[in-house]
Simulated assay, not measured.
Amino acid sequence: MLVPSLVIIAFVVAFPLVYSFYLSFTSYTLLRPIPAWNDFANYRRLLQDPIFGQAFINTLLFMFVTVNAAFLMGLFLSQAVARTIRGQPLLRTLLMVPMMFAPVMVGFQFRWFFNDQVGLVNNILTSLGLLNGSIPWLVDRWLAMFSIGVATVWMNTPVVAIILLAGTLSISPELYEAADVDGANSWQKFRAITYPLLGPFITIALTILSLDVARGFDIVSIMTGGGPAHRTELLWTYVPRVAIQEARFGSGAAMSFVTIIVTVVFTLYLFRQLLKSRIL
């Protein structure tokens, strides 16, 4: 059974990956369907592309903020639910509600929330007397990035919370009983028992979270489309724009491999921080 599985993996994953890597060194376009070798021209062109540079910076900031925010919120929710005695099954169900929505639906939902004319956020702020006019959430660069980040964190936090909740409930109650005998408070028990023993679960949660955030094409495309004027462009929205809309498949392939490198480096950075904190 192993050989057929390896053949399928090689056909579905390995061959497209190798072929796209080859295309990143060619001038393959829709108007020139026969790939012509051009060495590192596509990669050099990326360094000279101001939109790519802005998308690269936006992607680093976006991943750093959203991954950390979703992790911290998931950790907080997992500990809050774990300490709830009554109604815990109901809380677990409510915690999983954002996971039931497709990213496309989340994008449309938050696009309406942050609409400057009929959006829920501006209406609530106006009703509370905190706002006289309207805030252009999806027009200003940083406000738009914040809006996209809120949608991304809302959708991905439950995954982290569920994984860390499972890890918390798997810890032996005897450890906490021994800590109570020693007079430890809640923070000391969390710092000395809960957090270190959640190490493997944190690794799984951060890995899944990083991959999910790095596939956030749907939300960004629907909420802002990378605009206005490419101000909220991310690598995973700029790649299909170059490769499909502009039919520059060679440049798009080169950009996609840069995106993979960014994702891998960011994930390794997270693992390094975990190793430094001694929870791996």
Rank of each mutant, 00 (worst) to 15 (best):
F114V: 03
R83T: 00
N58T: 05
L72W: 13
Y269W: 09
A184T: 09
S147E: 13
F56H: 09
K189M: 10
F64L: 15
G216N: 13
I163Q: 09
T59Y: 13
L47A: 07
A253P: 06
G107Q: 02
W154C: 02
V13F: 15
P33M: 11
H230D: 02
T194V: 11
R278D: 02
F114D: 04
I8H: 04
R32A: 11
W187M: 05
V160A: 08
F40H: 00
V81T: 07
R141V: 00
L95K: 09
M105T: 10
R44W: 10
P200C: 12
L60W: 05
V13C: 05
A254D: 15
V242T: 14
F201T: 02
R45K: 11
Q188K: 06
S186P: 02
L30P: 02
D182W: 07
I9M: 06
H230T: 09
I51T: 13
F201G: 00
F146N: 09
W187F: 14
G129K: 11
T59M: 14
L270R: 06
G216M: 03
L270N: 02
P50H: 09
P4S: 01
L197S: 12
V97G: 05
D140I: 04
F108Y: 14
L94K: 07
S127I: 04
M155Y: 13
I193H: 12
A214W: 00
R32H: 12
N132C: 00
A179V: 05
R215L: 00
A70H: 15
S172C: 06
Q273T: 09
H230N: 09
V7Y: 05
F71D: 00
G250Q: 03
Q273D: 01
M96Y: 13
E233Y: 01
G216S: 12
G53H: 13
L90A: 14
Q54M: 08
N42C: 14
M99S: 09
L131V: 01
V220H: 01
T66W: 08
Y238F: 05
L75H: 13
P158M: 11
I85C: 11
G87V: 10
W137E: 01
M100F: 15
S256D: 04
W154Q: 00
Q273S: 06
L60N: 04
L6P: 07
L95D: 03
L211V: 07
M105G: 12
V239R: 02
T168Q: 03
I202C: 10
L90K: 07
I204Q: 11
E174I: 08
I279C: 05
L275N: 11
R191N: 12
E174V: 02
H230Y: 10
L30H: 11
A10R: 02
A192D: 14
V265I: 15
G226Y: 00
D182Q: 14
T194E: 07
G225H: 01
I148H: 13
A166G: 03
L72A: 14
G129I: 08
S210R: 10
A80K: 15
